[in-house]
Simulated assay, not measured.
Amino acid sequence: MIELDSESTVEINPVGEEQTKVIVVDGFVSNVDALKNSACEVSGYTPDGKTSYPGVRAILPDEYVDLVVQFSVPLLRREFSIPENVTFNVTMAYFSLLTVAEKNLSIPQRLPHFDTTKKHYYAVLHYLNDGDFGGTGFFRHIPTGFEKVDNARKDLYKQSVLSFMAIRGVPDPAYIGESSAQFKCYSKVKYKSNRLVIYPGNLLHCGLLSESQDVCADPRKGRLTASIFIDFDAE
């Protein structure tokens, strides 16, 4: 049985010029090894078919998803002023393993991205395995200055990205690292086993990854994370 650790710590970190809150929880569960064992026992790791995640995914256990929701939803309501009468849905819940070699990255996989333009859609990312893996970076789009992309910014942002690549060329087939000519990494969360990171899905973000450290299809050894996406019906 997977349980919350009563000694976990919660930090609320406003990041960037827009001071968007990113929540970091250390020591999230008391028995992270049980969750890692579950990841090794599950079958059917495949691309999710919905996102540009550069790897494979498998369904998370229901009891763990329920635990994350019970912890995260009250915290999100408080920190992002979401009323109690606003409903929510868990849109995706996966174990995730980075498996795509740099030479095989699509163009979107070489760039920071946003998950949605919705205001109250949140990514909950739980780092699981021990290891020197890449964390998560938050990026500012240099030509527009955007740190997050909502419906009002979406068209301008996409047009600007395409125009930049038309003039400067597409990025080389590589993980972005910390910054590029088009994007500046202004904040990052280091990978640490049993650390939970929660952030709005409209923030421009990307894993701070390298092929040599992070690409591995073995859930016992790779950059194993649990990824849950929570969508509040509030727009």
Score class of each variant (00 low, 15 high):
Asp233Asn: 14
Asp5Thr: 10
Pro112Tyr: 00
Lys36Asp: 01
Tyr186Leu: 08
Val10Asn: 00
Thr9Gly: 07
Ser96Ile: 03
Glu63Met: 08
Ile142His: 06
Gln70Asp: 15
Ala152Gly: 08
Tyr175Ser: 12
Asp26Ile: 02
Pro47Ile: 09
Lys188Pro: 13
Tyr45Ala: 01
Gly137Glu: 01
Lys21Glu: 13
Phe229Tyr: 10
Pro74Val: 06
Tyr64Asp: 04
Val68Ile: 12
Lys154Cys: 11
Tyr121Val: 00
Glu79Met: 05
Ile82Asp: 05
Pro143Thr: 03
Lys192Val: 04
Ala174Glu: 13
Lys188Trp: 13
Ala217Asn: 12
Lys158Trp: 06
Ser193Val: 09
His120Gly: 01
Cys40His: 13
Pro143Cys: 09
Leu97Pro: 00
Leu75Ala: 12
Asp155Gly: 09
Gln70Val: 13
Ala123Ser: 15
Val24Glu: 13
Asp5Glu: 14
Tyr53Cys: 04
Val161Ser: 00
Ile107Met: 09
Gln182Val: 12
Leu75Lys: 05
Glu84Val: 11
Ser179Pro: 11
Arg223His: 01
Glu211Lys: 02
Pro200His: 06
Phe80Ser: 03
Pro83Trp: 00
Ile167Ser: 02
Pro54Gln: 05
Tyr199Asp: 06
Ser6Pro: 01
Phe139Gly: 03
His126Ser: 01
Thr99Pro: 04
Tyr157Phe: 15
Asp231Leu: 07
Leu105Thr: 02
Gln159Pro: 06
Gly49Glu: 07
Asn202Ile: 02
Ile2Met: 11
Glu235Thr: 08
Tyr127Cys: 15
Asn31His: 05
Phe139Ala: 01
Glu79Arg: 03
Pro108Trp: 06
Ile228Lys: 05
Val189Thr: 14
Lys158Asn: 14
Glu102Ala: 12
Thr51Glu: 00
Ser43Gln: 15
Asn31Arg: 04
His120Tyr: 14
Val86Leu: 04
Gln109Asn: 04
Leu4Cys: 11
Thr144Glu: 08
Met92Trp: 05
Ser38Ala: 15
Tyr64Gly: 04
Glu3Ser: 15
Glu178Ile: 12
Glu211Cys: 08
Thr51His: 03
Phe229Arg: 09
Arg168Ser: 13
Val124Tyr: 06
Asp218Met: 02
His120Arg: 00
Leu128Ala: 05
Thr20Phe: 09
Asn194Gly: 06
Ile228Gln: 02
Ala58Pro: 07
Pro14Leu: 05
Pro108Met: 08
Ile2Asp: 02
Asp150Leu: 09
Val42Gln: 06
Thr136Pro: 05
Ser96Asn: 12
Glu17Met: 10
Thr91Ala: 13
Asn194Phe: 05
Arg223Ala: 11
Tyr175Ala: 09
Gly131Val: 04
Asp218Gln: 04
Asp233Ala: 11
Val197Gly: 12
Ser106Gly: 05
Gly222Arg: 03
